[in-house]
Structure formats: C-alpha cells, structure tokens
C-alpha cells in the first residue's frame, strides 16, 4: 500500500479550512453573545503547518512577547488530538476578569486573589475554547471531548508544550490562529489551536466532504 506522505494543504484546502473556521467562529461568537452576554469578534483565522520544536518561537513572534502573558491551555480529543491555547496580555486578563467578576457571587480574598484570578481565567477560557473548538468540530462532523483547562504563564509555555507532545510521526502540527476582540472594549487576545498532523488525512477527508456540499 502506498503511504500518503502529503503533509501539505492545497490552496483549495486552505481556503476551505479558512472558510470553515470563519463560519465556525462566526457561529461561536453569536452563541457566546447569547450565553455569556459578551460579544466577541473573531478575526479571519490563519492556518499554518509548523515544526513542533519551533512552536514556542512562532507563538512568541505572533503575539510580540510571551512574557507577561497568561495562557489558558486545554487539550481536546476528537478524531485527532489537539491543544488550544488562549493567550491574553496582563492588562486584558485583568479587564476580562473584572468583566466576569461583576456577576460572580464570590467575595475576593486578597490572600487568594492570584489563585482566584486563575480560576476565573480557566472558566472564561473553558467557555471560549469550548465554543470555538466544538463549532469547528461540528462542521467537520467530528465530536470532541475536553480535559479541564489550566492556566500557565507565557514563560511556562515551552514546558507545557513539551509535556503535551503530540508524538506525531511528522513532528509537525497544524496551527490555527485567530485574534479575538471583546465588545467595544480595547481587549484582545489570541487563540491558537494546535492539531496533531497525523490527523491531516481525516481533516482532508472532512474538508472534501464539506466542499462537496457546494459542488
């Protein structure tokens, strides 16, 4: 049997994936507005195939400087394995927490405030990531489950990525990126979805199935 070594996307595949993400994130943001009462604008997503070992560098260069960033990290399983990284700069993080805390029922204890901030970020991240990933999966006729998210600092990203190694034969990952902005506030962050490249064939099949609808 011939092994398919085609680990690249054709132009039409990239366009389809982009289109899919656009639809998925559009639906996600509409649904998010209903669920959390916050309108989130997700930018046109980009797709890249990256070497696993240069991921941190890439993410670092995408968002400027990872230092001072907090990242919500959440793994998911569907037909393929993936990790979502939601990164906010410190100021955005504080504003986001304040926004959600307005309706939280907890009184904040100064001695625990750091920890509670993290818990809050985890909750926000869980909703945002869940919305985007499951909408995308839905369009690809896939079903994903999630493990509980955790918060890491920008500096810890390298370790986290090593820990989370995809052990893909190709040591390459598919990287989907979008920038989100919240309401009319000057609040933005990045969402990265890293997928095991071993899943590329499943993904290609799903993409083919998707554009067949329009043929």
């Amino acid at each position: 049997m011939e092994i398919n070594n085609d680990y690249t996307f054709s132009e039409i595949e990239v366009d389809t994936l982009q289109e899919l993400m656009n639809i998925a994130f559009g639906q996600a943001s509409a649904d998010l507005a209903e669920v959390i009462n916050v309108f989130i604008v997700l930018s046109v997503p980009s797709i890249k195939i990256n070497k696993e070992e240069s991921l941190t560098e890439f993410i670092n260069s995408e968002i400027g400087d990872l230092k001072g960033y907090k990242i919500v990290e959440q793994s998911y399983w569907g037909k393929s394995r993936g990790v979502a990284l939601l990164a906010f700069p410190h100021e955005a993080e504080l504003e986001l927490i304040a926004m959600f805390r307005e309706d939280a029922d907890t009184v904040v204890d100064a001695e625990m405030s750091d920890e509670l901030d993290n818990e809050m970020l985890i909750e926000i991240g869980n909703i945002l990531i869940g919305a985007c990933v499951s909408k995308l999966a839905e369009l690809l006729k896939d079903l994903v489950t999630f493990v509980p998210p955790r918060v890491i600092s920008g500096e810890q990203l390298v370790e986290a990525l090593v820990e989370n190694r995809f052990e893909s034969e190709t040591s390459r990952v598919i990287l989907l990126k979008t920038v989100f902005r919240i309401n009319d506030r000057e609040l933005s962050g990045h969402l990265f979805l890293l997928n095991n490249l071993d899943s590329i064939h499943t993904l290609k099949d799903a993409l083919r199935a998707f554009w067949k609808q329009y043929e």
Partner: peptide, 21 residues
C-alpha cells in the same frame, strides 16, 4: 452561563471549589 454552554456548545464545565465553594 454554564448550563447554557453545555447545551449550546457541548462544553464541559469544571466548577472549582475555590471560586464557587
């Protein structure tokens, strides 16, 4: 918010004791 995100997105919600008791 949590239950809506379960029905709407199929989210899994992890509600921590630290934040919500």
């Amino acid at each position: 918010r949590s239950i809506k995100s379960v029905f709407k997105f199929g989210n899994f919600v992890f509600m921590s004791q630290k934040l919500h008791k």
